[in-house]
């Protein structure tokens, strides 16, 4: 027994040796949470930003590591609930998928965290949506889709996903009855599902649509952007619903609730500087998800406006299964 006790005391002594004291930001490694597994769009965005942030800190003479940390689970909820409980010292931040992560705010559903309590730090990605149909389906325009005598079928990732919300809002606004088929793993997955005829159409990020359509397999029938980029694609304004241009997908970075203003500013500045780096902007453009960085205040404004708009569709979103 004595042997066991001595053995138990040893690790305790080692643990005590690394007790640090909390100081100003940044005084230790920054944990950059990714609410999904490695390999996805959010993961690579953070992995691209992290070294840029490290470089900026190094230039200030601070040898701090920014550690991308994957915390997949509950379609992004697990990491958010973790962040809600983290210390608000700027050393734990997370990339959010908006508006998907705002589901709780929009519908009042319990999701395990309160998005509105998080400290918004900035925007590092901003995308618009297109509607794609399979070329062989014969659906060449929104008009064709609206003329269908049956509900349209839309394969996607599932309820609560950003694309599902966007799709619900679009079809509700246009008065088209839509049936969603959830459960696909990624946008590549449901883009292919449209091609093999699992459904009629789906919504894709505009940035990647051109790539998916490299072989000309799809019709891009709508692009919800003030400046639609695809030939033959209409936008919300042309359909008489300019509000549809508010249906976007954003990559927002936020910290735990109750961060001190000076810490918020420090992190936000660091983030904005990294996301405005030419190499990041170019890379983001090339991979199809434009960076369009915003600072904390700008991002907060966008998010609040988004919530106001989405709130109109509260019931549709809450009902969707």
């Amino acid at each position: 027994m004595r042997k066991l006790l001595t053995a138990a005391a040893m690790p305790l002594a080692i643990a005590l040796a690394y007790a640090p004291a909390a100081q100003a930001f940044p005084d230790k490694n920054i944990k950059f949470l990714i609410p999904y597994g490695p390999g996805g769009g959010f993961d690579v965005t953070v992995r691209k930003l992290a070294p840029l942030m490290e470089n900026i800190l190094a230039a200030q003479g601070k040898k701090i590591q920014v550690v991308p940390t994957n915390m997949p689970g509950g379609s992004g909820r697990k990491a958010a609930s973790y962040l809600a409980k983290a210390r608000p010292d700027g050393h734990t931040i997370m990339i959010f998928n908006m508006p998907g992560h705002g589901l709780g705010v929009i519908t009042g559903k319990k999701v395990g965290y309160d998005f509105e309590k998080f400290t918004i730090l900035g925007r590092v990605g901003h995308g618009t949506y297109v509607v794609v149909t399979a070329k062989k389906s014969g659906l060449k325009s929104i008009k064709d889709i609206m003329a269908l005598k049956r509900p349209i079928k839309v394969p996607d990732q599932g309820p609560g996903s950003t694309a599902r919300m966007a799709s619900l809002i679009v079809w509700e606004t246009l008065g088209v009855k839509a049936e969603h088929i959830g459960g696909y793993k990624s946008s590549t997955d449901y883009a292919t599902a449209v091609l093999r005829g699992d459904g009629d159409l789906t919504l894709l990020a505009a940035g990647s649509a051109a790539r998916y359509n490299a072989r000309g397999d799809y019709n891009i029938v709508a692009h919800f952007s003030p400046k639609p980029r695809f030939e033959g694609a209409v936008n919300g304004k042309m359909l008489g619903h300019p509000d549809l241009e508010k249906v976007t997908l954003d990559r927002i970075v936020a910290g735990p609730p109750k961060m001190k203003p000076e810490v918020t500013k420090a992190v936000s500045d660091l983030l904005l500087k990294a996301a405005s780096d030419k190499s990041y902007i170019d890379w983001a453009e090339k991979t199809g998800n434009p960076a369009d960085p915003l600072d904390a205040a700008g991002a907060k404004k966008e998010i609040d406006e988004g919530f106001k708009f989405f709130a109109k569709f509260k019931d549709v979103i809450a009902r969707s299964k």
Binding site: G39, G41, V44, D189, A191, Y212, A214
Partner: peptide
């Protein structure tokens, strides 16, 4: 189609994206 056939392949495609290659078909 750029769909990962296995979990390894999914992460591998992510690495390609980091190197500036767009995933997908």
């Amino acid at each position: 189609f750029g769909i990962p056939g296995s979990a390894e392949m999914a992460v591998f495609l992510g690495v390609l994206v980091l190197h500036g290659l767009a995933p997908g078909p």
